[in-house]
C-alpha cells in the first residue's frame, strides 16, 4: 500500500466508510499483530491491542499527510498501545516463544510445516526487542530511522540489535 492509498483509506474512514479501514486491516493487521505480540508476549492481549489499534483508527482517523511513512505511523501507534497495555497490567515480558508457537495456525502441507517450524525456531532464539525490530524491519519494511522513532531507541541501537538478529537468522540456515 502506498502512502497515497493509505491517505485515501484514512479519508474513507473520515467519511465513515468502513472500506478504508478494511483495506488497512487486510494489508497490515498480520504485521502489526506480530509487532504487538513481540511487545506483550501474550496472544490474547496482542489480539485485544491489535483490535484496539484499528478501533482507534476508526474513532479518531489521523490527519495523515502522504509521504510521512504510514507504516512507521501504524507501527508506532500499535507499539504505543501495546506499551500502554503492558503498563496497565504491570506485566513482565519474559516471552516463551515456543509456547506461543503451539497456538499458531495449523500448516497445511509438509513444506509449510517445515517453513513454520524454521521460522518459529528463529523467533524463539530472539529476545522480545529483537523480535519487535525484526517484525518492523522485515514485515513492515521500516527503515532503521523509522524503527528508532517508533521504539524510542537510538538508531545505532536499533542497527546493533538488528545485526544480532541477522546473525541468529543466518545461524538457522537463512543465508540467502
Amino acid at each position: 500500500m502506498t502512502d497515497r492509498e493509505f491517505s485515501n483509506c484514512i479519508e474513507d474512514i473520515r467519511q465513515r466508510r468502513q472500506d478504508g479501514l478494511v483495506r488497512i486491516y487486510n494489508e497490515y493487521s498480520a504485521y502489526l499483530f506480530q509487532v504487538v505480540l513481540a511487545v506483550l508476549g501474550q496472544r490474547e492481549d496482542a489480539e485485544d491491542v491489535t483490535s484496539d489499534v484499528f478501533l482507534k483508527l476508526w474513532e479518531n482517523p489521523p490527519s495523515y499527510t502522504p509521504g510521512n511513512g504510514h507504516r512507521g505511523y501504524l507501527a508506532t501507534i500499535a507499539r504505543n498501545r501495546a506499551v500502554d497495555r503492558l503498563r496497565k497490567e504491570s506485566r513482565t515480558i519474559a516471552v516463551d516463544m515456543t509456547e506461543e508457537a503451539d497456538l499458531g495456525s495449523v500448516p497445511s502441507s509438509e513444506e509449510e510445516i517445515v517453513n513454520e517450524i524454521a521460522v518459529e525456531e528463529v523467533l524463539a532464539m530472539m529476545s522480545p526487542a529483537e523480535r519487535e525490530i525484526v517484525s518492523m524491519k522485515h514485515l513492515m519494511g521500516l527503515t532503521f530511522k523509522e524503527i528508532a522513532e517508533a521504539t524510542g531507541k537510538p538508531q545505532g541501537t536499533v542497527a546493533w540489535i538488528y545485526r544480532e538478529c541477522i546473525k541468529k537468522i543466518r545461524r538457522c540456515g537463512y543465508d540467502r
Binding site: Y25, A30, Q34, E47, S51, F54, W58, V119, H138
Partner: peptide, 23 residues
C-alpha cells in the same frame, strides 16, 4: 535475506488471528 523474509511474512500471515469481524 529474501528467503527468511518470505518465510517470516508467510508465517505472520498464517499466525494472524481474524480480528476483523470483531472490530
Amino acid at each position: 535475506l529474501p528467503e527468511w523474509e518470505a518465510a517470516f511474512t508467510e508465517y505472520a500471515r498464517k499466525d494472524a488471528p481474524d480480528l476483523l469481524p470483531g472490530i
